[in-house]
Design a protein around this nucleic acid. Structure first.
Length: 573
RNA sequence: UGCCCGGUUGUGUAAUGGUCAGCACAGCGGCUUUUGAUGCCGCUUGAGGAGGUUCGAAUCCUCCCCGGGCAACCA
């Protein structure tokens, strides 16, 4: 992304918000943002948008963006997820920066702040702003009341700080079972905002933490932990999704308490008060984005894994052949607003084609081969074709050509429909880069399936143009039978058959799985492709963009994944 | 229903009291083309509703309608 591009970026509301704060001096000279994933799954295209916003805003203002693993619930988190998240963000083209809390610049674990959080909680208790409560979850729900009616205070609400401090320490020391006690902030049981009705801020969880082991058996809740993490890191602008909007008053409450306790970071003489704002998450039609549902697709075997190229995860899109630049461009184009919307995957596909059209080397591959015999052609010749007609610096390559070539079945019609201008009996077509051929007949098997197409070539047309200047409109791709290489090609289509797989709720989405979302074919590809390197991207001419599969491809036995088809303007009349 | 948020062409968005309401994607038509690709040109379609403020409203106000969120010891 170059600089002129950034200045073109829309001045969305978050950008204006940061701009004003920064200009007013509230950032202490440095805009600090953060991307705070919970390491309980792989990140998907929706997270990618958040990554672009969080890192993008920091970059725009010359500030820093922290990567913080929000690992406050050990039950669902793992190191495997943590490592993959870091890898995916790097691949997307972003680098975290800032001090960091463990020697790695810009990298933080919420769990590394557990000591500080604990101290803050104790101080809350001392100040009478938090208390230990032993209501059961059911009782707690009942006491809390419903939104339209005030709740009732817990019997523990006005107990003595010393007693609460003792119980809280006993909670920490493992004296109690899960759920027996919890720590609650003392705010307002009558608030119309449910989150203010003395929210739980610490709960007991006798679970090993993937990062800290058994050091703790009490863990802070998100609403308590998140503002502390932001404040301690000196984050100025904390951007999250819309559903956290009603949590914002609580976020501010915690920041206020930290201020009272003198814990806010001071940068260049300015006390840094982190602020939260919310924007709409990215939704895309024809897929599902919830971590839970994606996990279900994986565990039930509907896809081959988190990186199955049909998944909307970043690792899957990488394997599918999408480029980081295209994903960034897509996130940029969908914009940043508070409107809940559903983006069309066609835009993402357009972004991919736009980049790959400029950068991908052209190759020829026949996905559904039928043999074409050129009766009057003798010997072998090399055809020289450009690697990318749009980019002369990509050079040319030589492709062997001889009497027998494979062509795609779709490029021949025994009885051509209207407006079909490829090969048909008695008709002429150009073999890309080679010559003009004229169909003289077909051979069929017992079932009537065409096994061979016969033709003759115009000897004056070597290179592609007939010597007499007559127009031949159709050009088709081919692969030489003698030197072509067999390859496995995986043709991907959308995972679901409807734009809204959750139309019946999250239980019924499996019945909309597209049975044709993956078709595997054995293709013939030109010899140059036999040794293509893992991750290399190509345009198979007239077909689509393909990438060498990073897991299954081997030299001499290549495997290609179709990233996206080429646009097809052919419409039979 | 208590509180909070949001409604601009099919989709995603721009505008910050003054533009014929702009752009992109999609769709449709045409030109070019040794990829029916790319490129280029053109076209269709929009302010949820009703009032009000104002010389002037997509923009400000009121009410209504519609959509979403919040009532885990998840994040």
């Amino acid at each position: 992304m170059d600089e002129t591009k950034e200045s073109d970026t829309s001045r969305h509301f978050l950008r204006q918000w940061i701009e004003e704060d920064h200009a007013a001096g509230r950032t202490g000279g440095t805009v600090v943002t953060r991307f705070p994933p919970e390491p309980n799954g792989y990140i998907h295209i929706g997270h990618a948008k958040a990554v672009c916003v969080d890192f993008g805003m920091a970059k725009l203002f010359g500030g820093e963006c922290h990567l913080r693993l929000d690992d406050t619930n050990p039950a669902k988190e793992s190191d495997e997820y943590a490592e993959n998240i870091k890898n995916d963000i790097r691949w997307l083209g972003f680098q975290w920066s800032g001090a960091g809390d463990s020697g790695e610049p810009g990298f933080y674990n919420a769990s590394n702040m557990f000591d500080a959080m604990y101290q803050i909680a104790e101080e809350l208790i001392r100040r009478g702003q938090a208390y230990c409560c032993n209501l059961t979850q059911d009782e707690w729900k009942e006491y809390r009341g419903v939104p339209e009616k005030p709740g009732r205070p817990s019997p523990s609400r006005d107990t003595d700080p010393e007693r609460n401090l003792r119980i809280f320490r006993e909670m920490r020391d493992g004296k109690y079972a899960d759920g027996e006690w919890c720590l609650r902030a003392k705010i307002d049981m009558a608030s119309p905002n449910i989150h203010f009705r003395d929210p739980v801020i610490y709960r007991i969880r006798h679970v090993s933490h993937y990062h800290l082991g058994d050091k703790w058996c009490i863990y802070p809740m998100y609403d308590f932990a998140h503002p502390i993490e932001d404040a301690l890191e000196g984050v100025t602008h904390s951007m999250c999704t819309l559903e956290f909007e009603v949590h914002r008053p609580l976020y501010d409450w915690v920041v206020d308490r930290m201020d009272e306790q003198g814990l806010l970071v001071v940068r260049n003489g300015v006390k840094i008060r982190p602020q939260q704002r919310e924007f709409a998450r990215l939704n895309i039609t024809w897929t599902v984005m919830s971590k839970r549902l994606l996990l279900q697709l994986v565990t039930e075997g509907h896809v081959s894994g988190w990186d199955d190229p049909r998944m909307p995860t970043v690792c899957a899109m990488r394997r599918r052949g999408f480029t980081p630049g295209a994903i960034r461009e897509f996130c940029d184009r969908v914009g940043v607003t508070k409107v809940e919307s559903e983006s069309d995957p066609a835009l993402l596909e357009w972004c991919v084609r736009e980049e790959l059209n400029r950068t991908a080397l052209r190759r020829m591959a026949v996905l559904d081969p039928v043999k074409l015999v050129i009766e009057n052609f003798e010997g072998t010749r090399d055809v020289e074709v450009p690697n990318n007609p749009l980019d002369e610096s990509a050079g040319t390559r030589k492709v062997p050509f001889s009497k027998e070539v494979w062509i795609d079945r779709a490029d021949f019609m025994e009885v051509p429909e209207k407006k079909f201008f490829r090969l048909a009996p008695d008709r002429e077509v150009r073999l890309r880069g080679a010559c003009i051929v004229k169909c003289t007949g077909v051979e069929k098997d017992a079932d009537g399936k065409i096994t061979t197409i016969r033709c003759t070539w115009d000897e004056g047309s070597w290179g592609g143009n007939p010597s007499d200047g007559r127009k031949v409109k159709g050009t088709i791709h081919w692969v030489d039978v003698a030197t072509g290489v067999k390859a496995e090609v995986r043709l991907y289509d959308r995972l679901f058959t409807v734009p809204d797989p959750l139309r019946d709720g999250s239980d019924g989405f499996l019945k909309y799985l597209n049975p044709d979302s993956l078709k595997t074919v054995t293709a013939y590809v030109e010899p140059a492709l036999a040794t293509a390197a893992s991750g290399e991207r190509f345009q198979f001419e007239r077909t689509g963009y393909f990438v060498v599969d990073s897991k299954d491809s081997k030299p001499g036995a290549p495997v290609f994944n179709r990233t996206v088809t080429l646009k097809d303007g052919y419409k039979p009349a």
